[in-house]
Amino acid sequence: CEICHEVFKSKNVRVLKCGHKYHKGCFKQWLKGQSACPACQ
Rank of each mutant, 00 (worst) to 15 (best):
W30S: 10
Q34E: 13
K21R: 13
V7Y: 04
C4E: 02
N12T: 12
W30T: 11
K32F: 05
V15E: 09
L31S: 12
K11A: 07
K21D: 04
C18V: 00
C18L: 00
R14K: 10
C4A: 00
S10C: 07
C40I: 01
G33E: 15
L16T: 10
C4G: 01
V15K: 04
A39R: 08
A36S: 08
G25T: 07
H5D: 05
G19P: 01
F8A: 06
S35H: 09
Y22P: 04
Q29G: 11
L31I: 11
C37R: 02
C18Y: 00
L16K: 06
C18H: 01
K21E: 13
K11L: 10
G33I: 06
P38I: 05
E6S: 15
P38H: 09
N12D: 09
S10Q: 04
G25H: 13
H23A: 02
K28L: 06
K28A: 15
K9L: 02
A36V: 09
V7A: 11
F8C: 08
A36P: 14
E2S: 10
N12P: 09
G33Q: 12
K32P: 12
S10E: 07
E2Y: 11
L16G: 15
K21Q: 10
N12M: 09
G19A: 05
K21Y: 11
H5G: 08
A36W: 07
Y22K: 02
K28W: 08
H20W: 00
Y22C: 15
K17D: 15
E6W: 05
K21W: 07
H5Y: 15
Q29R: 14
Y22I: 14
K32T: 11
N12Q: 13
A36K: 08
G33Y: 04
C1I: 02
A39S: 12
I3W: 03
A39C: 09
H23V: 02
C37T: 03
C26D: 03
K32D: 10
A36Y: 05
G25P: 15
A36R: 08
C18D: 02
C18R: 00
R14E: 12
K28D: 14
A36T: 11
Y22N: 05
K21H: 06
N12R: 14
A36I: 15
S35V: 11
P38Q: 07
K17G: 13
E6N: 14
K24H: 08
R14Y: 06
F27Y: 03
G33N: 08
A39I: 04
Q41T: 11
Q29E: 12
K9P: 01
P38V: 10
H23K: 02
C4Y: 00
L31P: 10
W30G: 11
L16V: 04
S35F: 07
I3F: 15
Q34K: 13
W30K: 10
K28V: 04
Q34M: 10
S35D: 13
I3N: 15
G33A: 14
K11R: 03
C40D: 02
S35P: 07
C4K: 00
K28R: 12
F27P: 10
Q29K: 14
C4W: 00
R14Q: 04
H23D: 07
L16I: 13
C40W: 02
W30Q: 10
Q34W: 06
V15Q: 06
I3G: 05
V15L: 11
C26F: 01
S10W: 03
H23G: 02
